[in-house]
């Protein structure tokens, strides 16, 4: 099945949010997951079915205080701003 995960094409055989996180080696505690713009409760991860073409966002907390003009949202430009900080740390 083909998904879009954090804006990238992602192929997987997993069909629930819970299994997808396990496959991506992401611990669910400190992340939040959105499927097609709907926030999924942690308690629902295991049972939440994914469909072909679903758009999945997995987010967590990075350093940030005041906004940075270059630091755009999820859709955004990753090369600069706070993204640069998280990427340069490999975070």
């Amino acid at each position: 099945m083909r998904l879009a995960v954090n804006g990238e094409t992602y192929h997987t055989e997993k069909d629930t949010v819970g299994d997808l996180l396990v496959e991506m080696d992401i611990s669910p505690e400190r992340v939040a997951v959105e499927v097609n713009l709907k926030v999924i409760r942690k308690a629902e991860y295991a049972g939440y079915k994914l469909q072909e073409g679903d758009s999945v966002e997995v987010v967590y907390f990075v350093g940030g205080g005041e906004v940075d003009a270059r630091n755009k949202c999820i859709e955004g430009r990753r090369q600069e701003g706070l993204w640069r900080i998280s990427l340069s740390l490999g975070a």
Partner: peptide
């Protein structure tokens, strides 16, 4: 402490977490 919400880097999954 204030923090921002951003995408997890799914290509480098063993990365550090601010928290």
């Amino acid at each position: 402490v204030t923090v921002a919400v951003r995408r997890v880097n799914i290509t480098d999954r063993k990365s550090e977490n601010l928290l």
